[in-house]
Amino acid sequence: MNILWDFDGTLFDTYPAYSRIFSHVLGGRAAEVEIYKKLKVSFSHAIDHYGLSEEQIDEMNRLEEKLQPADIVPFESVEEVLKLANKNVIMTHKDRKGVLAILQYYGWEEYFSDMVTIDDGFPRKPDAASYRYLHEKYGIDLAIGDREIDLIPANELGIRTCIFQGTSKAADYSLASYDKFQNIIDFDLLKKENL
């Protein structure tokens, strides 16, 4: 199975750190739990919702750059899923340097055959161009993301989708935790046997 992964909120639990930064920039005028919900839609959604100025966005970017790889924690059992896959690729709006620093910190760079980052010049999700590129190169079987915006491009290309810690009509599967991933594999094997 070849898997396309989103990064933030899918491989790594980055939203708590981003929510703290957002709250700091807002001067504490919004609860981190509420910010978290807005960020799960998208960063631009949260920025628009709270009406951040250019100066505040710049401050957020500066604070985000100060995050250390140790501040970004992988989700429990996700490494076991990475080991199960034939190939793993990443599509993220993060910069390549930041992604590589985190992967290297955890010793995970060996799990990934390729990645598309914001540095590669593809349009942002939900545009399917970056997914198409990775799919044509690797024959993606499953796309995993934590937001609907991560699944829409895969749907457009006919790739099965899995939403992590959420719900979406765009998802073929949903997972609350990665220790249940085997159920997806078993389900697909069962479907094939019944054909």
Score class of each variant (00 low, 15 high):
Tyr15Val: 03
Asp8Tyr: 01
Asp6Asn: 07
Glu136Cys: 05
Glu54Gln: 12
Gly145Ile: 04
Phe122Ala: 11
Pro126Lys: 06
Ile159Met: 08
Pro16Ser: 06
Arg124Ile: 13
Ala154Tyr: 01
Gly139Trp: 09
Asp6Gly: 00
Ile57Arg: 05
Pro153Gly: 04
Asp95Lys: 13
Ser42Arg: 02
Asp179His: 14
Phe187Trp: 14
Asp127Asn: 15
Glu156Asp: 12
Tyr50Met: 12
Ala129Trp: 10
Asn88His: 01
Leu103Gln: 03
Asp172Asn: 15
Ser19Pro: 08
Ala85Met: 04
Val78Phe: 07
Phe12Ala: 00
His45Glu: 02
Ser130Val: 03
Thr92Asp: 02
Phe43Leu: 02
Lys40Gln: 10
Gln182Lys: 15
Ala128Ile: 10
Tyr15Cys: 02
Asp172Val: 04
Val89Glu: 00
Ala154Ser: 10
Ser177Cys: 14
Pro126Glu: 08
Val78Glu: 08
Asn2Tyr: 01
Gly98Asn: 06
Ser53Tyr: 04
Ile21Gly: 03
Lys169Ala: 15
Tyr173Gln: 13
Ser23Cys: 15
Lys87Trp: 01
Gln165Phe: 07
Phe43Asp: 06
Asp119Ser: 13
Pro69Leu: 02
Met91Gly: 02
Tyr18Lys: 12
Phe7Ser: 01
Tyr111Leu: 03
Arg124Cys: 09
Arg29Trp: 14
Tyr106Ala: 05
Ile72Lys: 00
Ala154Gln: 09
Ser113His: 14
Pro16Met: 03
Lys37His: 07
Ala128Glu: 15
Ala30Glu: 13
Ser23Ala: 15
Asp8Ala: 02
Asn61Thr: 10
Met115Leu: 13
Ser77Leu: 03
Glu54Phe: 06
Ser168Pro: 07
Leu134Trp: 08
Ile185Ala: 05
Thr10Asn: 00
Ala101Pro: 04
